[in-house]
Simulated scan of single mutants.
Amino acid sequence: MAYYIGVMSGTSMDGVDAILTDITDTSIAPIAAVSIPYPAELLELLHQLCTVSPNEINHLGQADRAVGRVFAEAVNKLLAEQHLSPADIRAIGSHGQTVRHYPDGPPGHQDDNGFTLQIGDPNTISSLTGIDVVADFRRKDIAYGGQGAPLVPAFHAARFAEAGEHRAIVNIGGFANITVLEGVDAGATRGFDTGPGNTLMDAWCLQHLNQPFDRDGNWAASGTVNQPLLNSLLADPYFSGTGPKSTGREYFNLVWLRHHLHDMGTSIAPEDVQATLLALTATTIANAIRALEQVKQCYVCGGGAFNGELMTQLGELLPDCTVKATDSLALHPQWVEGVAFAWLAWAYLHRVPGNVPNVTGASRAVVLGSLTLAD
């Protein structure tokens, strides 16, 4: 046995997942998981950091340590529940919390100095857990000319590829990304961010219902898709662009949505906007899969897999494709990304490249991450 722990918090910031995984050269076996929420004060600070604000450097430094503490708390809770000691864990793979993602540079400053920024101090995590930490996975890919995202396709190929099968693995978190697996040929793996996943729906729901998300898509299901608004959203050039491409809340946010709502020139009921936002997520994912004629299997992970209305619409938009959650492939949808970063820690220690140049646009495959020792 070789135990690794993947720690993950996505752009939705709905909590921190820590996944215990047994990883060898031939198997990836998730064992147990815990999830804990961010404290309310830290969550507010993280949301502030996602937009330009005063005292950013001070807030960044404070949040970096605070996120590290929460990640360590999740790891220690997992260890206690599984009756394990730090010595039982080979390494922690920490994704960190993304607060900025500008791989091509900020608006108006596109140049060779694009960046992505994930916080969650690995020194804090290692000191509070007593375990070596591999973190900072994305910046190496950017240094080699890539987008730094999505990074899960290499793991998807290692865990989900099967000879003779053409599959799409769709992760629907705050944003949605797709991995295309053509048999077991890792070199043929493709992928990109399709666009918004849950982020716009969650933000709209919080604004109008004071709830962090639309449970099972029930509010969206109560509304009616506004086709002119959907057409306006789909006309954004991001959706017609070819990969490699990645995106984030810096681009798709409520300001972006309000711009389109303003252009409509008429009031639209909030539930109809929510229905349209869900249709946007489903349509952009389905369009990406329909463009891949050989793909007949679609497996969904992330929080979107638990949105019944979203899964129903995906199935309707892809009548020639089987749409299921990844638990049908023996991996819980909520665990996939955490296991992916446990695997990326394993890949770092075994000098296995963690990026896929076809996906990110990097000039070559490279080992990702940086190691922080516990002592």
Results as ranks from 00 to 15, higher is better:
residue 315 G to E: 01
residue 107 P to K: 00
residue 109 H to E: 08
residue 333 P to K: 01
residue 293 E to R: 14
residue 318 L to W: 05
residue 138 R to W: 06
residue 275 A to K: 07
residue 179 T to Q: 06
residue 306 F to H: 12
residue 232 S to H: 10
residue 86 P to C: 04
residue 301 C to Y: 00
residue 282 A to M: 02
residue 300 V to E: 02
residue 358 N to E: 03
residue 232 S to K: 11
residue 238 Y to K: 04
residue 75 V to T: 12
residue 17 D to L: 09
residue 312 T to L: 13
residue 353 P to Q: 08
residue 128 L to P: 05
residue 369 G to Q: 07
residue 332 H to K: 12
residue 142 I to P: 07
residue 309 E to L: 02
residue 85 S to D: 05
residue 208 H to K: 08
residue 272 D to A: 08
residue 266 T to P: 00
residue 194 T to R: 00
residue 81 E to W: 02
residue 288 A to V: 03
residue 105 G to R: 12
residue 349 L to I: 06
residue 288 A to F: 01
residue 166 H to M: 08
residue 361 G to N: 03
residue 150 P to N: 06
residue 202 D to W: 06
residue 209 L to D: 04
residue 44 E to N: 12
residue 91 A to E: 01
residue 155 F to G: 05
residue 296 K to D: 15
residue 368 L to Q: 02
residue 178 I to A: 06
residue 49 L to Q: 05
residue 304 G to I: 08
residue 335 W to D: 12
residue 139 R to G: 05
residue 213 F to H: 10
residue 309 E to V: 11
residue 293 E to Q: 13
residue 346 W to E: 02
residue 336 V to H: 11
residue 290 R to L: 15
residue 148 G to R: 04
residue 274 Q to F: 09
residue 198 N to V: 10
residue 274 Q to Y: 05
residue 101 H to V: 08
residue 372 T to Q: 09
residue 323 V to T: 11
residue 290 R to Q: 15
residue 160 F to L: 03
residue 89 I to Q: 04
residue 109 H to V: 10
residue 199 T to K: 00
residue 284 T to R: 09
residue 241 G to C: 10
residue 291 A to H: 10
residue 261 L to C: 09
residue 306 F to E: 05
residue 286 A to R: 04
residue 220 A to G: 15
residue 170 V to C: 03
residue 68 G to H: 00
residue 261 L to Y: 07
residue 282 A to F: 03
residue 57 I to Y: 06
residue 219 W to N: 07
residue 320 D to Q: 14
residue 72 A to H: 04
residue 252 F to C: 05
residue 104 D to R: 14
residue 338 G to Y: 12
residue 342 A to L: 00
residue 348 Y to C: 11
residue 239 F to C: 07
residue 190 R to L: 14
residue 362 A to N: 08
residue 113 N to G: 13
residue 323 V to A: 09
residue 368 L to E: 03
residue 69 R to E: 14
residue 96 G to L: 14
residue 54 P to M: 05
residue 269 A to K: 14
residue 238 Y to W: 08
residue 171 N to Q: 07
residue 155 F to R: 03
residue 233 L to D: 01
residue 128 L to A: 15
residue 199 T to V: 15
residue 95 H to A: 06
residue 74 A to M: 06
residue 289 I to Q: 02
residue 69 R to W: 02
residue 314 L to T: 05
residue 105 G to E: 09
residue 72 A to E: 06
residue 289 I to E: 04
residue 44 E to Y: 10
residue 279 A to T: 01
residue 317 L to A: 04
residue 190 R to H: 14
residue 192 F to S: 03
residue 342 A to V: 02
residue 91 A to R: 00
residue 43 L to N: 13
residue 149 A to Y: 02
residue 211 Q to M: 01
residue 87 A to T: 11
residue 350 H to Y: 04
residue 248 G to M: 03
residue 109 H to C: 12
residue 117 L to H: 03
residue 22 D to F: 02
residue 147 Q to C: 11
